[in-house]
Amino acid sequence: MSQPITIFIDADACPVKNETYRVAERYGLHVYVVANSILNVPREPWIERVIVSDGFDAADDWIAERAGPTSIVITADVPLASRCVKAGASALSPTGKAFTESSVGMALATRNLMQELREAGAITGGPPPFSAKDRSAFLGALDRAVVRLRRAGA
């Protein structure tokens, strides 16, 4: 018997939790909402809130230890996405960008470069504001990821 598809949300700053719930409900998937603090989540049997310690990377570690080939991980955290992709999971950013084995290395390098530039004071702004276009791209990417896993037998 195949493993069920599960979704893990790196939830502390995730702007697409409600969109994820809608897609998960449509396909009958279990969602783990992982955070260091208590977050409100819908009271549904298929949504599970997981509160981890406030230790450095505790939520990332919890997700990475459980992610596998039938998992979809929602995160903006590039190092977490890298760990999950290496474990065979699908990883999506809240803007709908899929992290793959071929793209995650470049994403890590870009992240590290941007962090160095920020620390040096060369860059003072953050990412652009989250938009309706980002939300729409995410919904499409999540739907495609679920369909791909279902076709693969998950």
Rank of each mutant, 00 (worst) to 15 (best):
P4T: 05
I5K: 08
T6A: 02
F8W: 13
I9T: 03
A11H: 03
C14H: 01
K17H: 01
T20G: 01
A24V: 13
E25A: 12
Y27H: 15
G28E: 08
L29A: 03
V34W: 08
V34S: 06
V34F: 10
N36H: 07
I38N: 05
I38A: 11
P42E: 15
E44N: 13
E44A: 15
I47K: 10
I47P: 02
E48D: 12
V52N: 09
D54G: 14
G55L: 13
G55T: 07
A58L: 08
R66L: 09
R66A: 09
I72E: 04
V73N: 04
I74N: 07
I74V: 15
T75H: 07
T75Y: 06
D77F: 00
V78S: 02
R83M: 15
A87V: 02
A87D: 07
A87R: 14
F99M: 05
S102G: 02
G105P: 04
G105Q: 12
M106R: 14
A107L: 11
A107D: 11
N112W: 09
M114G: 00
Q115I: 01
Q115K: 14
E119C: 05
G121Y: 07
P127Q: 10
F130V: 02
A132I: 07
A132R: 13
A132H: 10
A141M: 06
D143K: 15
V146M: 11
V146T: 07
L149S: 09
R151L: 15
A152M: 10
A152R: 15
A154K: 07
